[in-house]
Design a protein around this nucleic acid. Structure first.
Lengths: 231, 231
DNA sequence: CAGGTTACGTCAACACCGTTGACACAAGAC
DNA sequence: GTCTTGTGTCAACGGTGTTGACGTAACCTG
């Protein structure tokens, strides 16, 4: 824990890189974010980040101890952004759904972050604000402290978990994705009724399995929360 | 699609490796599985797999086109194993919970597979059996074809999504994990009541956020399915 | 305005990774 | 016994994260 932090408060000596850019922790996070947004998550590597910055890749390590630290910083920023336009309507159930969907959508674009912000506690301002808001909605519903925390945890992890899975689909080449979609119809649609009576019966509905289940899942969760709410 | 498959049915020429092992697709999948089980998911690399097999890593490519194909084969095997002891009790709701938890637990040990078997359709026997069983339980509950498929999708993806997240926690070094657990108490437990009234109020319950939310989430899903069931 | 410290950008290197193409050889076919 | 060819091996390519040495420019002191 000796040299725990790489960023000792303020930078004094701001030497530009060979390409003229002046680095900073913020700029690095910005660029990383842009890289992921435009090129996809798998395009994020330290070396490509360096190239995008116009700097040697190893310069990043002057600001973050490793890529994990960098992603952690990016995570909190994204949490903040995803909750930026959130305005509670007063209907706690609808608000919770919106809250969870925002988390999902943000995580979907940044899958590395999704797993991350569940796994690690950023402990940073945006995360704290979001947790405050989310648990608050459940208290508003009439749940006691323990239940509010437990249900918040279930809801957020479900949203982020679906994001982690769905991000995997987006990562597939479009051709592969189309092939898999067809597989639900072709391979599953033609199974013998004797051996697979259920699959045979529901065969027309199987292609929906290729899409995301996040809304179905959230709807069920919210329905349960609504019917169990003490208030 | 010309050389779609690497494994053309049967192998005739079974030449042992330099270490004396006779390779086969099954042996490779077995070894991969063992590697992940004993060393953790991040220990699975083609090169380590080669070493564990006592063969040159590139020999794997005689049996699988790439690592993705190999993982796909492993995925179906794991689906089979996880459902091996499954015995429906007749209580469809309880059975669904068991079904989902089996998927969760299996995926938790093999996170790469978790994302995978949601993303890609293996189209292999074990997968088909599992889907047949799961959707069957929802039909038994009285849901119509479309709803049964939709709810099955939501349930399974939720279980696997939580597995993907929770696997990230397991991957952390124990020290890091303990530190994060304490963070929920330390950083979050000491927030000022004025600025964070909710977090201040529920501070004693926050450490549960460090654990898995899968059971809470599944309980809510099952509760919703139970109360919405037409039957 | 001169000199000294040193933070920080750069470079080269290390140890990994998945994957491929050339090659040699032994197993099976005839 | 000879031929074909499947299959294990080897070396190499281009990629990855990360580290340590190094020089220089930016700031501080005077």
């Amino acid at each position: 824990m000796a040299e725990n932090e790489r960023v000792p408060g303020e930078r004094k000596r701001r030497r530009p890189t060979s390409s003229g850019v002046v680095l900073s922790a913020d700029l690095i996070v910005d660029t990383a974010r842009e890289l992921i947004d435009t090129q996809g998550a798998q395009a994020f590597t330290v070396r490509k980040l360096g190239a995008a910055l116009g700097a040697d890749p190893s310069a990043v390590y002057r600001y973050f101890r490793n890529t994990e630290e960098l992603l952690l910083a990016l995570a909190d920023r994204l949490i903040g952004e995803s909750m930026a336009g959130f305005a509670p309507s007063g209907d706690w159930a609808a608000d919770l759904r919106d809250f969870a969907l925002r988390a999902y959508r943000s995580a979907l674009r940044h899958p590395q972050i999704a797993v991350f912000s569940t796994v690690r506690v950023t402990g940073r301002p945006h995360e704290q604000r979001a947790v405050e808001t989310g648990i608050g909605l459940l208290l508003q519903a009439g749940y006691d402290d323990a239940a509010a925390v437990r249900h918040y945890h279930a809801l957020v992890d479900t949203a982020l978990g679906h994001a982690a899975l769905d991000a995997g689909v987006l990562r597939l080449a479009p051709a592969q994705r189309a092939a898999d979609e067809r597989a639900w119809q072709a391979e599953y649609g033609s199974l013998p009724a004797e051996e697979y009576p259920v699959l045979h019966r529901v065969r027309d509905h199987l292609p929906v399995m290729a899409g995301s289940a996040v809304e179905s899942a959230l709807d069920l969760l919210i329905a349960a929360l609504r019917s169990e709410a003490p208030g």
